[in-house]
Design a protein around this nucleic acid. Sequence first.
DNA 1: ACAATAGTGTCTGTTAGACAATATACG
DNA 2: CGTATATTGTCTAACAGACACTATTGT
Lengths: 251, 251
Amino acid sequence: MPPYDPSNFPPFAVTVDLVVLTVRRHALCALVVRRGETPFQGRWALPGGFVRADEDLGSAAARELVEETGLCAHDPARPAANGAHLEQLATYGDPARDPRMRVVSVAHLALAPDLPAPRAGGDANSARWAPVDDLLRPGTGREDEQATPLAFDHARILADGVERARSKIEYSSLATAFCPPEFTVGELRRVYEAVWGVVLDPRNFHRKVTGTPGFLVPSGGTTTRQGGRPAQLFRAGAATVLNPPMLRPEV
Amino acid sequence: MPPYDPSNFPPFAVTVDLVVLTVRRHALCALVVRRGETPFQGRWALPGGFVRADEDLGSAAARELVEETGLCAHDPARPAANGAHLEQLATYGDPARDPRMRVVSVAHLALAPDLPAPRAGGDANSARWAPVDDLLRPGTGREDEQATPLAFDHARILADGVERARSKIEYSSLATAFCPPEFTVGELRRVYEAVWGVVLDPRNFHRKVTGTPGFLVPSGGTTTRQGGRPAQLFRAGAATVLNPPMLRPEV
DNA sequence: ACAATAGTGTCTGTTAGACAATATACG
DNA sequence: CGTATATTGTCTAACAGACACTATTGT
């Protein structure tokens, strides 16, 4: 039995990495930044950074999110003006995951509505939204500079984050985190379609979401930004879990 | 922008804490150990310890599990002889969670079949299975020595682990991790009843679990250890997700 | 015989999924 | 008018939940 003396613990660095997801042009996209230093210099990576000495893990993630995107995390209630959903994802601590030293990374998952453009330190070329299908595709010959594998174990972290998002919109109202404050049923349906990579029946979807109490509340207005008949505008309701859940179609 | 120099990171200690759950006498129970040192000396706590310098997080959790219970973790396939399910739960890093120094704890969740008795360093009085309802009950006057609040933030960690187990047996075959290698439908039902704290209809439950392909495979034998008509024995099948899920009854 | 548990069958209400039909905008 | 999207309605198969009934052991 080793003594529980906190002074002879092995030295660790603790970081937070962010899987920031959004839906752009009908595709699920993740925020990636270009690394300026070794290791993996020039490769794309998930945004992240060291946890400060007196900072909680969630606070560190929220700070990084603001630094990278300007988004405010909005955990307890639902996204207000410029808020994004933020939750802890998982922790990655393989001794060899960073060649420099022992780094344990507490990954977080953030879901945001479509945003104008990423800004990382003001450098436009050093951050971008990339479709997750491109980032996670294993070497398929389409190995241009945009599709090189992510640094460190970030492909695994991203895959875990995507899977969390895909499963969580089934039984929670989290899909609304991808939408602006006011949105139509069709826009919400296109979120589900993009995240799951499927096509859903608009009529059954409409009946399902409007029939689930507390999921959507009408905000009064209508919009015609999608063309066709004007659609009713909704806000996210108070319900956080969906019962019964949205069913993801089989493969 | 702080420089990404891994040599000027704040000093962290990284530990793993274990939420080990089992079902004993029709109640969901967790393994707790008595602390021998300050802080929280004499209080009950979740088992855990420091992650070693060249050890993966999952390996550290598996090592602690063996040290505390003698159980072998058995992640990929299903519990064989003496295997338990082990998965990462969440990470807790409040700067004030340990008064001695900055400690980040990567909590893991383990599910085990009913075991003879815990052994922690051979000391029988320093470890026990306690009903989670007792451990999580806020001060209700029943504040005897057995029910004093857990050390550190372990009550929160335990609550998160219990909630994870409760929700995960809905849509996965994980409930079989609480059962011995061979079990009856009735025994499996009593697991669900203990974990959820509800009473289920034996007839509908039987129809549901035997009708879900891949959940249970008959092992040929029968048993009468519960009294009454002999029951068919089953093993856990290959299916890991249940579709459609088991439905947890409403409150 | 009685108690206890295992297992099968039957009925009913709800819901998912397929799809017809109507409504209201823009061009 | 044609096209596009929104919204309502209808039908059917599957399933959850309630519960009657039979089967097989021990006492």
